[in-house]
Every structure is written in C-alpha cells, then in structure tokens.
Write a protein that binds this DNA or RNA. Structure first.
Lengths: 259, 259
DNA sequence: GAGTGGTCTAGACCACATC
DNA sequence: ATGTGGTCTAGACCACTCT
C-alpha cells in the first residue's frame, strides 16, 4: 500500500514520503520551512540530485514551494468561492460592478481587470459550442481578473461575429451591466446555459497569465449560453487555478415526497 | 511570452517546449510515440539527464506517458460525463442500479464496484460538514467504481453514527435503491444539498486506489445533504480523475423578462 | 541479448537575494 | 561574500520486456 514508505523504495521516494507525512500530519504547517537540500543530503546520506528528485515530487504535488535563496516552504492555499449558479440570477437594477467585483469588494479586497478584445479564428472546441465552423472568425473578449494585484482567474468570453458586430462588446472597456445584458439589448436574450468543467494541468500560456506555481492544476469552466430557440450566443471560458478557488453550488431536492 | 522557446532558455525547457508544441499543433497525435531519450540526446546535443528533465515536464503536465521499455507516448484521454445535478432528480420506482451504473450500462460499458464500510474518526473537513466534533466516530462507506475493470472514481459516503446505527448502510453490500432512500426510510429525508468542488493533485493513496498516472490532477466533489430542518445527514466525497471526467450541469435563466 | 526507461553518484558552474 | 536553489555533465547499475 504505502509503497513509498518501504525501506525498499527508492531513496527519492522515501524522502518525498517523509516530508509529505510531516505535512499531512500537521508536524509541518503551512508556511513552515523544510531543511535545505544540503541538510537533507546529510540526513539521508544521498547526493543532492537525489534529494532534489524527492522534493520535486512534493513540488509537483503542490505541497511545497521553493523560494530561492531561502529554501523550501510548506505551501498555503486560500480558496475564493466560485459560484457558477449565481450567473443566472437577477442582478441589481443599476449595477456598477459585475458579480465578480461585487463579491471581492464585499470581502474587503480590491478587484481589477485587464480586458483585451480581438477577432480570432474559432478552434474546434469553441466552434462546436458556438455552432459555427472551425476557422470562422469570432469575437474574443479576454479578461484577467486580479485581487489585490494578484492574478486570480481568466475569463475569456467568445461571441459569433454576426451577433455583436459594431456593438459595445467590441470595445475593450469595462461593461458594468455585463455582456449578457448587452446581448439581450441586441435581441439575443440568454435563456439557458450548459456548464462544463474540466480538470487538467495548465498550459504555459496560462501559467504565465495567472502566475501559477508548479504543481497547480486548473479547472476550466465552459459556460455556453443559448436563447430560448437554442441558438448559442456566447461561450465563456473561465480558467480557475486550483489553489485559489473552490466551486460551490446548491441543489434543491426534486423527489416525489411520497417516496 | 513563450519563454521556453527562447534560445536563451535552459535546454530542458527547450526540449519540453519542442514536443509540447508538436502535441498541441497536432503534429504528434494521441498514441504517437516520441523519440527515445537516447535519440533526443543526440538531437539536442545534451546528456540524458537533461533530456529526462525536459520530458518529465511534459509527464507532469499530463501530456505524455512513459511505457517501459517501449518509450514515451502522447497521452489520450476520454472523458466520462459527471452530472452532479442529476443526484437530486427522481429515480425509477424500482431501480436495479444506482445512477452511475445506469449511465455506464447505457453507454455499453460494464460497471463494477468495491465497497468497504468502516467506522472512522471524523477529520476536520468531514466534521465541519457533518456538524459533529472532530474525532467523533462516523460511518464511512467507501467505494471505488470501475468501468470495464479500470478504476474510474472514488465515492466515499459519510454519515453521523447516530443516524445509521444498525441500518443497512452499515453493511458493505450493494444498495440498489441508494443510501439516500435508506436515510429517508430512517426518517432523515434529504431536502437540499451543497456541492463544493476543489481541484488539486492527488494524494499517494488516491494515486494507488485510482491507478493514476503522473500529471493527473483530480477534482474533489463534496456533496453534503441536509434535511429541511438543516440537519446534515450525509457527506459524500467524490474523487474524479481529471483525465477521465468532465463535470456537466445546466442552468435556466431566472432574470426578470422585462429587463 | 538488446534496448527501454528508472535510479543514483560525484562532481561543476550559474543566478539570485540577502547579509 | 555567502548560501540558496537551478541547471548540466559524465559516467554507472538496475528492472523490465521484447525478440
């Protein structure tokens, strides 16, 4: 079972297991420093490369981070709550902020955004969801959201070009009433949405935009909106770093009470 | 931007970027074999350890797998659809299978399960959700679900001991009508649930139970059920390997149509 | 037996932040 | 200047599977 703990296991796995157990058991707490590579070398009687192999296991597991030139530290994580359900609830009549910003301000933190609008060719993933052909031109409204100056998630909205040509959505300015409202004004009222969540390791581009550390997986949330007639009007790709978010929603029971 | 592509980047990053780009662009397709470590050594003019560093980046990104003694191959993934919403919908009157098994059979595949029931002490995560004190004894009904003999997800249900003592839930047998129904018969009808999804790298135990490859993150889905009075009656922890699942749910709009 | 990846040793030089 | 982790070389032996 606990193969890595066996004395027959490779040395680097024993090193990883040793410090993993100390972290899980609470002996090492978030923010605590591990021994240096040099010290672990002497503790286990192996060369530095072997120590590095062991620690790299814990780095890719997201348990520790290297802070040069200080050493390795137990990682701490703080999850912001992400509620996909709330997107389909009414907003205040005259909103000054989108829902993300409202939530952050309510938590006493400072939100900011970087918005970038461009015309791109639809890849297969987006083409299928937006009911267009791969390679068709679509509008991408790319946004990185920050909390207290730290990049926190990616929110890239995509629209079929025909729907939003010459509308406000084409401007890289902040739309306080939200793109859904603009779409509704253009005659494309969103009636229902399909949410898909994938879990994977980030691409180098995502690592760069979100300033992700090694061993940080991401959730990709595809939110595809449709009119009552079933026409796709937008597909938003949210990329949520696993160490900064938890996804929350609620369900009411629909059982027959006589059951 | 594409730092790893710069000629100034470390050799192992250039190697990783080279094959990552070939995979993303489609030049290398799922199932294709990469050159051997020895061949890449000659292609880049570096020693084997450096090649291994580069390839290990792609392994931990989940893009490739090592199949000894054949070589490295581009990984292929197949996502089963996971619908947390369906848990709160009525089932057929006389179910012979749980929802998971129903779906798998409908897809023409063969489900199976390993069930294990035990009494455990609640850790802080479960204690908080089940409204008990940390260290209190709770009932854990642990289940690994298989498709065609391959482990696919973990489904561990937890109950306060007082609620289910001496009930069928304590037996490690398959309950075709579901534990929710058994709880309802005991007088604890579930009225609503809160779902929380975390994204992280798996623990060694999860790697073992689910036979996970390196670079595979997991989603942890906490499904906590409450009676109408707000009493927590169960907390189920689903562990979903990222390379085998996508999470899907739907939303109807709740806007005021006059908006 | 040949070839694959898995592990390990014993060195070396570097960039970087702190003292 | 010191000490940290980051990268790299040049070897070695091993377990495993295919032929």
């Amino acid at each position: 079972m606990d193969v890595a703990g066996h004395s027959g296991a490779p040395a680097y796995q024993r090193i990883a297991a040793t410090y993993r157990n100390k972290i899980i058991s609470g002996e090492l707490r978030p923010g605590d420093q591990l021994p240096t590579e040099h010290e672990i070398t002497e503790l286990f009687g192996v060369v530095r490369q072997t120590v590095r192999s062991g620690l790299s296991v814990l780095v890719t597991e997201g348990l520790i981070v290297a802070r040069r030139p200080h050493g390795y530290f137990v990682r701490q994580r703080e999850h912001m709550v992400y509620r996909p359900q709330q997107k389909s609830r009414p907003r205040p009549a005259t909103p000054e902020m989108d829902r993300f910003s409202q939530q952050i301000v309510a938590e006493g933190r400072t939100p900011s955004q970087l918005i970038e609008v461009s015309l791109v060719q639809a890849g297969p993933e987006l083409a299928e969801r937006l009911q267009v052909n791969p390679g068709d031109t679509i509008v991408a409204r790319r946004r990185v959201r920050f909390i207290n100056g730290e990049p926190t998630n990616i929110n890239d909205s995509h629209f079929p070009l025909d729907l939003v040509r010459d509308s406000e959505i084409m401007s890289p300015a902040y739309l306080s009433r939200g793109t859904d409202q603009v779409l509704a004004e253009l005659g494309y009222r969103q009636d229902y949405a399909i949410d898909e969540i994938f879990v994977r390791m980030p691409t180098p581009d995502e690592i760069h935009r979100l300033n992700l550390g090694p061993g940080t997986p991401v959730a990709t949330h595809y939110d595809t909106g449709y009119t009552a007639a079933g026409q796709a009007v937008q597909c938003t790709v949210n990329v949520l770093p696993g160490d900064r978010h938890k996804i929350v929603f609620e369900r009411q029971w629909q059982d027959d009470p006589g059951n």
